[in-house]
Design a protein around this nucleic acid. Structure first.
Length: 381
DNA sequence: AAACATTCCAACCGCGTCCGG
DNA sequence: TCCGGACGCGGTTGGAATGTT
């Protein structure tokens, strides 16, 4: 009998998982839990590395995963959270029960990113793309509304140095953006096919294919968990209330989803505004930025009072419930009535309540009237 | 029908962090 | 304090699926 030599290391399998492998992993975890991932493949009889097993389980086999298309609320929430957190996919995913960071990331890269670009919005910064900004400036020239917002613009433009991922999402500012917006239908369906149409239409962005038979396997073995409500997880709620570096993070309310978001997050704009203002005033009543109540959110605190400001709350319009107006300074009252955050960000100019700038609407073409464009002078210097 | 183009996503990779010895 | 293993995260890639020509 030949003596077995130590030989080369057993080669680990890579690439797509077979249903048999999925079964093994599911059975093993169902019986013993995953424990130490590095030992899982050996115990489960898999020729995979522990890392691969972990990934497969987390992203694919976990019974509590919600498969299927992202809802409009989920899409809004992803955009909102991304505007605050940047590419913190795992953090964003914690706000979306049943979704994985990988899924959110892929959804962002394959769908939302393009959607925002087509609307003239830089998905990285949530600011207008350069051309869109230029168009905005050009359109704003000669507008009587520029004067109305002059003070605000100064403040806004002087405080737009927030780090990427922390910007206030701007409105669509070009006709092209609006036209592309019009292309979309709110009733898009992600029904089939990873393949895409070469015209970049939404249809091509909608593919969610679940063609791997093993995707059902987990549910077969363990039973699908009921979809959890938003922000069930206290840790997730904490994450929502406190952004990176201690910046108070608040879900940007959208008209289309603000009620959903608020209920999901257990946050009311009013409550959060109050907290922000109190934090501010308690620290330093002499901070002009604090007192004018009108500043872009920044990752960097005021030099004078170390506060971060949350403009969509401090703007405090009635656009998403009204209560948020508590923090508005009278000085800007009239302007702010027009400068509704929800109008800018979630409805577009003149958009109908219930629509999101990021969301889909066939009425978006109405965004681009002269006055609308004139009020988009976020980047005026 | 075939070749090519495009899109999507599951999986991989590298790096940073955490934690126990 | 240092070291190494485990884990988690974000970026990237490979290839299947689908659309287009």
């Amino acid at each position: 009998m030949a003596r077995r030599t130590s030989g080369p290391k057993k080669k680990l399998r890579r690439g797509l998982w077979s249903p048999e492998e999925d079964d093994k992993l599911i059975n093993h975890i169902a019986k013993y839990g995953h424990g130490c991932w590095s030992s899982v493949p050996k115990l489960a009889g898999l020729e995979r590395c522990g890392k691969s097993c972990r990934l497969r389980w987390i992203n694919y086999l976990r019974p509590d995963l919600k498969r299927g298309a992202f809802s409009q609320e989920e899409e809004d929430l992803i955009i909102h959270l991304h505007s605050m957190m940047g590419n913190k996919w795992s953090q964003i995913a914690t706000q979306l029960p049943g979704r994985t960071d990988n899924e959110v990331k892929n959804f962002w890269n394959s769908y939302i990113k393009k959607k925002l670009r087509q609307r003239g919005i830089d998905p990285a910064t949530h600011k207008p793309l350069p051309l869109a900004a230029d168009a905005s400036r050009a359109a704003a020239a000669g507008s009587s509304r520029t004067a109305v917002f002059s003070d605000a613009e100064l403040i806004l433009s002087s405080t737009t140095t927030a780090a990427a991922g922390q910007h206030m999402p701007p409105p669509p500012v070009t006709a092209a953006a609006a036209e592309s917006y019009d292309v979309y239908s709110n009733s898009y369906s992600r029904s089939s096919g990873g393949g895409g149409a070469s015209d970049g239409s939404l249809q091509s962005l909608s593919g969610y294919k679940y063609n791997n038979s093993s995707k059902q396997t987990a549910a077969d073995h363990l039973g699908a968990a009921a979809a959890a409500g938003y922000l069930q997880d206290p840790a997730a709620a904490d994450a929502l209330c406190c952004g990176p570096s201690g910046v108070p993070a608040v879900v940007l309310p959208s008209v289309s989803s603000s009620s959903t978001l608020n209920s999901m997050a257990g946050l009311s704009p009013a409550a959060t505004t109050t907290a922000t203002d109190e934090q501010c005033n308690n620290n330093n009543n002499n901070c002009s930025s604090c007192n004018n109540g009108f500043e872009l959110m920044s990752t960097t605190p005021h030099s004078c009072c170390s506060n971060h400001h949350l403009p969509w709350l401090e703007l405090g319009t009635s656009g998403y419930g009204g209560a948020a107006s508590a923090g508005v300074v009278d000085h800007y009252g009239a302007a702010l009535d027009e400068l509704k955050w929800s109008d800018y960000v979630f409805d577009g100019y003149g958009g109908q309540p219930g629509q999101s700038i990021y969301g889909d609407s066939k009425d978006a073409v109405q965004f681009v009237d002269a006055s609308a464009l004139s009020s988009s002078s976020w980047c005026l210097n």
